[in-house]
């Protein structure tokens, strides 16, 4: 599984530049991103950047604003203030360009339960405007790699959670996105299935895909090159797991999280 990578298209024009930084250099660049619902601020002026090919852990307490931020980065929700670029394109001005370049796996997988595995793949391919041949070729390759080939005629609703999760990943990467957003992809999944899932994530990252992932499993935080931790709409810590442990004097990411977020 290879990510499409940067390419000339991803290079921003002058009108897209964000002050001194060139958004095209980064997989994700966020500056002062804010979202309010009425008088409640769910995401409160967050700024950070994610390198190309990086596995970036986007951690935080429940309700901290992770899903809201990801939905803005995927062009699904308009920011109230601030700017963000994904693969060099501004999320507000060019949401349609963003959608071809990203894959998104939502907290609830977003599969069609009453379709078969194969139908889910074909349907997703249709949404992304892939040709029938592209869907067949890449779909077959993915289903094989995900261990789902023998189950392709099975109804999605009849599958164990770990299978649904792998299918959701397959659908999210069918169009070879350069940035993959995974919102709690392993929620409720057993240790064996999680391990297999992370093997796939590493494979994608090795192929050049940028991985932007949220999780409440602290062992998974250790798999990330860098992690950010959000509390009440703000990013309050951002560094490599090793450095965060060093800074807080904590032995594990679990302890880091308890210290940083603890009420």
């Amino acid at each position: 599984m290879k990510g499409r990578g940067a390419g000339m298209e991803g290079v921003p024009t002058a009108s897209m530049s964000a002050g001194d930084v060139a958004p095209g250099k980064y997989a994700v660049l966020v500056q002062g991103l804010t979202r309010r619902f009425g008088d409640f601020t769910a995401v409160d002026g967050i700024s950070f950047s994610v390198e190309r090919g990086e596995i970036f852990g986007f951690l935080g307490a429940n309700g901290a604003g992770k899903t809201t931020a990801i939905r803005m980065l995927c062009g699904l929700l308009a920011p109230t203030e601030g700017e963000a670029w994904v693969d060099g394109f501004p999320v507000v001005a060019a949401p349609e360009k963003i959608k071809r370049r990203i894959g998104y796996m939502s907290q609830r997988f977003g599969l069609y339960d009453d379709l078969t595995i194969q139908e889910n793949v074909s349907f997703t391919g249709g949404i992304y405007g892939l040709s029938r041949r592209e869907v067949t070729e890449r779909g077959d390759l993915l289903l094989e790699r995900l261990g789902l080939k023998d189950y392709r005629r099975r109804l999605t609703s009849s599958l164990p959670l770990g299978f649904k999760q792998r299918l959701a990943l397959g659908c999210a990467v069918l169009h070879s996105p350069s940035v993959l957003f995974l919102d709690e992809p392993t929620g409720g999944v057993d240790p064996l299935a999680r391990r297999q899932f992370w093997d796939l994530i590493y494979e994608l990252a090795d192929g050049g895909t940028t991985i932007f992932v949220t999780t409440h499993y602290m062992d998974e935080a250790e798999y990330c090159r860098r992690v950010s931790i959000m509390v009440d709409g703000r990013v309050v810590a951002l560094d490599s797991p090793a450095r965060l442990k060093q800074q807080t004097g904590a032995g594990t990411m679990q302890d880091v999280f308890l210290q940083v977020v603890g009420r």
Binding site: H216, L258, R263
Partner: peptide, 13 residues
């Protein structure tokens, strides 16, 4: 049945 799925570390404890 899996009450803490999706619950953050602080709330789990």
């Amino acid at each position: 049945d899996e009450p803490t799925t999706g619950v953050d570390v602080v709330s789990r404890s």
